[in-house]
């Protein structure tokens, strides 16, 4: 039984079958990897590009970035305060979820895009205070619709920037490459 199966695999038709199975597995794996690299679905297709074009500063909606660890996501009251004033958006079908949420007192469940694992203690304030601009990590929001993560946020990426910023300053280098600066 097993032997005849292996013999069947050895002839041209069998080899083609092996090739097809291999290609199918390979494409499935590639597709699986591809899906992990996509921006998640959001409750509203929020266009960053449009908002930035109106001259709204990052810190207007994400004020936590200059004050503490988390940049924060604006409350829907903040969204609605503006959108309620604009006739075009007040009744727009695209903003219906926002309107519903505000009227029913529910919350919109935004999906975080730029995330670090639980064991990394990241602080936005220190990075803003060090003169980093938002787009250096989060990409150019004037060009983006729904927020996407422009890069893999792994430890090597963090360290490269830390080492670069420390420059010749040994004390700063020690502080910025200390394990306990981010992990505790």
């Amino acid at each position: 039984m097993i032997k005849s199966f292996f013999n069947w695999l050895k002839q041209p038709l069998g080899l083609i079958a092996v090739g097809i199975v291999f290609l199918a597995l390979f494409s499935a794996a590639a597709y699986g990897l591809y899906t992990t690299q996509q921006a998640p679905d959001q409750p509203i297709q929020f266009p960053h590009k449009t908002h930035v074009a109106f001259g709204i500063q990052c810190l207007y909606c994400h004020p936590g970035a200059s004050k503490g660890p988390a940049a924060g996501i604006p409350s829907q009251a903040k969204c609605w305060a503006c959108h309620n004033q604009i006739v075009k958006t007040r009744d727009s079908a695209l903003l219906a979820p926002l309107k519903d949420a505000v009227l029913n007192g529910e919350s919109l469940e935004w999906v975080p895009v730029a995330i670090v694992p639980d064991f990394v203690q990241f602080n936005h304030r220190a990075h803003v205070a060090a003169g980093k601009n938002c787009e250096e990590c989060h990409g150019d929001m004037t060009q983006q619709l729904v927020a996407q993560n422009p890069q893999v946020m792994n430890m090597g990426w963090c360290l490269n920037c830390h080492i670069e910023n420390a420059g010749e300053d040994q004390a700063k280098l020690i502080k910025l490459t200390d394990c306990g600066t981010c992990h505790y």
Partner: peptide, 19 residues
């Protein structure tokens, strides 16, 4: 694995859980 390392910056014994 360098999971328990000395913090030169804070002079503490660190335990890096994820390592």
């Amino acid at each position: 694995a360098f999971a328990t390392v000395h913090s030169t910056a804070e002079s503490l014994n660190l335990q890096v859980y994820n390592r």
